[in-house]
């Protein structure tokens, strides 16, 4: 154990850095996608609702590992061999897309549910004062919706952080991928995977604690 830490500690820490980088990139775009499709699904417009519904259903219905293979291998193959366009994705780009799509779909559902949990009277009261729809949404409905969304969003962040490990299959040098290499060299799988598990545990515990604090702070003003 000590030996692995001594020899490969730095490598594993760097890999954890890559994991966090990937998670952060993915989450950033996931928030944008989630917000977009979440709002699309609460608009009083059937076409928008259907588009949002299809996005969520398709992404939720495909396992992330399939999505990863499809984005990293499938799409460039299609463009290069079937359409004659030269196109490649780095593992980071492909990984970000996968996480953003996957997490974005779940975020869209969280945001939709959060907005719908706010009493319709809040929107009506704001509109009755003359506020336009989006103004009322931003000033009155969303602030209340976000409060109820926060626990679910944090939960989704944690799931996404763990899901980065799936992207080891497209060769992104995140923690699991690097750990595999360490095991291949040292054959010390018990020690290596124990270290990896503890590393995930530490990061996610810290994240949960920060989140809990944030949640408490947001609820204080009520």
């Amino acid at each position: 154990m000590i030996q692995i830490l001594h020899t490969y500690g730095r490598l594993l820490l760097q890999a954890m850095g890559q994991t966090l980088l990937l998670a952060l990139c993915g989450l950033f775009f996931a928030c944008i996608l989630g917000m977009f499709f979440g709002l699309l699904s609460v608009l009083k417009n059937k076409v928008c609702n259907v588009i949002a519904g299809i996005f969520v259903d398709v992404i939720r219905g495909v396992p992330m590992i399939v999505l990863a293979y499809f984005v990293f291998f499938g799409i460039p193959y299609c463009l290069n061999n079937m359409m004659g366009v030269s196109f490649t994705l780095t593992a980071l780009q492909a990984g970000t897309i996968c996480l953003a799509l996957n997490c974005g779909a779940y975020m869209a559902e969280i945001i939709r549910a959060g907005i719908q949990s706010v009493d319709i009277g809040q929107m009506e009261a704001a509109r009755s004062l003359g506020l336009p729809y989006w103004r009322a949404m931003v000033r009155v409905v969303l602030p209340q919706a976000i409060r109820t969304m926060i626990p679910s969003i944090i939960n989704q962040f944690i799931i996404t952080l763990k899901d980065t490990s799936i992207l080891s299959v497209i060769g992104f040098p995140e923690l699991v991928n690097s750990a595999k290499n360490v095991v291949a060299i040292t054959f010390m799988s018990f020690q290596t995977w124990a270290i990896v598990a503890v590393m995930y545990l530490i990061v996610i515990t810290i994240l949960s604690k920060v989140a809990r604090r944030l949640e408490r702070r947001l609820n204080r003003g009520r």
């Binding site: 009493d119 009277g121 809040q122 009506e124 009261a125 704001a126 009755s128 004062l129 009155v140 602030p143 209340q144 409060r147 009520r222």
Partner: peptide, 12 residues
């Protein structure tokens, strides 16, 4: 102006 049965004050 409109006043509602359930007040609809902005909770936030």
């Amino acid at each position: 102006g409109m006043v509602f049965q359930h007040f609809n004050l902005f909770h936030n």
